[in-house]
Write a protein that binds this DNA or RNA. Sequence first.
DNA 1: TCCTTTCTTGCACACGTGTACAATTTCATG
DNA 2: CATGAAATTGTACACGTGTGCAAGAAAGGA
Lengths: 331, 331
Amino acid sequence: MSGQEKPGRKPTSFDVARRAGVSRAAVSRTFTPNASVSPETREKVVKAAKELGYRVNYLARGLINRRSDFVGVVAAGMDNPFRAMQIEQITKKLVRRNFRPILLPADHGESADHVMDQLLHYNVSGVLVTSDAPPTALCAEFAAAGVPIVLINKADAIPAVDRVVCDTDTAGRLAATTLLEAGARHLAVVSASAISYTARRRQQAFLACCHALEADVRVIPVAVNDYANGLAAAERLDGVDGVFCVNDYMACGLIDGLRRRGVAVPHSVRVIGHDDVPQAAWGSYELTTMRQPCDLQADQAIDLLTSRMAEPEMAERVELTPVTLVRRATA
Amino acid sequence: MSGQEKPGRKPTSFDVARRAGVSRAAVSRTFTPNASVSPETREKVVKAAKELGYRVNYLARGLINRRSDFVGVVAAGMDNPFRAMQIEQITKKLVRRNFRPILLPADHGESADHVMDQLLHYNVSGVLVTSDAPPTALCAEFAAAGVPIVLINKADAIPAVDRVVCDTDTAGRLAATTLLEAGARHLAVVSASAISYTARRRQQAFLACCHALEADVRVIPVAVNDYANGLAAAERLDGVDGVFCVNDYMACGLIDGLRRRGVAVPHSVRVIGHDDVPQAAWGSYELTTMRQPCDLQADQAIDLLTSRMAEPEMAERVELTPVTLVRRATA
DNA sequence: TCCTTTCTTGCACACGTGTACAATTTCATG
DNA sequence: CATGAAATTGTACACGTGTGCAAGAAAGGA
């Protein structure tokens, strides 16, 4: 219409300023929180901006602020339904707080390095890591570069790196006592403790509790905490009548494996899982499990992130996510 | 060490140039594909960059190129395992092609507008939409702004908006014939056809095939295609001995509902689903279903995206994703 | 009316990069 | 050696924005 602005280009603050009859600074201030603009000016600017379809270029804003609205979300193992829930909660809450989540799937340990490295090119506001194998060196590099970083359910204690960890002690203890209460006398824990921090910790707490109560218990190690390994583990449970699977995903496999062998659950073998994924409540499983509230956990993680953005020099913190027992049919 | 660069700041191409004893343009060219730099210069620059821990600022690059590496991924209903698979595949493949996926969960129709609108601030390279309710007006606005946009399994035909759609005709036909072959004579389709395009199309194809074969068939409408509605739908199947659920997520609920009522599957009622989610292969379900290859689908979508980035003025295209029958125990 | 205080506004610089253009160097060829 | 072509390099501008600073306007008090 006006023909002033260059044709195939998106309108800039210059275009809006000219149309509104004000300076470009006034436009910038209109769209910057806590900036000083008179109501009349603001109104003129907003009107012109709407007419032109103007949007602030956040790339340019991020350039000058030396900080973008992006938050890296490093995740792996999305076949596990719990991970899917986690990612949904995290991204929803980030968006609600006006961050933009960059989702980085990092399944193969090698690629995790490469992929996380990319984040350093974007001046991200922070990073959330739920991957099982966060490269410690790289995490430290982020922290050193002043990028807030929060690990969820991970082990490594790194200076200036905050963590959110689910209450593994309570989980292990509740699992043991619940199985015993249900009448089990020969317990087992199925766990890939070599690769997963929380699996290792839950296993340790479970064993400690069993020993304290002088209960018979053994460890069934698996390679990965997934359905297939749970299914296979059912073949190795002779003489066991109570099983703690370190996550529900694997517990579903275990139950299916037991049923295939004709073993009655919970009559012959009691099973307890962890996470309370949707499938745990499904009619075919009715799995007794430990609810890990991943919506609360997401809030905790983002709170840690934002508080460190405000005070980068803080000492690192560890936040504990509470677990609660969900009684269903399998124990 | 050198003390030249400002302290607490990340090194810039200036710092690298000074240290390498070259111009800043040489640094830029070193990190720009297809730019002309001599091997010696490149080596000096790379060395200096490594020593300083320099990373190209992609925000600045995106500013001058008028295009960022970001691709918006709008998704909803991540409780459905198929959606989780989809998102995993899409983000993995995007990252592999050097894009950065911005994941935007858009469950409530109202928020989808707001959330997608945000993308226009980032000069994204493109947008992938798997949400059930993509705001048509907004999609058109993206296309008008020259942002490539691809809808996955969505209805609306919009100028310059490409689409990937799973082969609903084959799916519906295969579902009907497979149920009939398995001995079913009184068919039903369970579907929330009001809110989901693919559900509606699959239902139509299923009904058309049934009518062509003069088979008895009825429609069981539900509000949402999820587990809970599948579970409830099992109460409304009197006289039915063959059911097509428009997705596996709901089929799992339906089977659990039938079992709860003591109905034998597949002896009394045959069930067929769609998507081939991991749970369909689980021992408790053994669900016969239609595999929707979401890895291939992701490739198709990204191919459409990149080809339109190269040629923005193309007429809109529709790519068909093939489905294949996976025979298991329920039909 | 005059002075002081508070608000608002515009100018100009900075953020970190890509690239057109011209200047320079390299190199093969006659 | 002369010459033209090709490759490399540096200068300078552009991308679109936030904000310090000083100047001006408005408001309030004596």
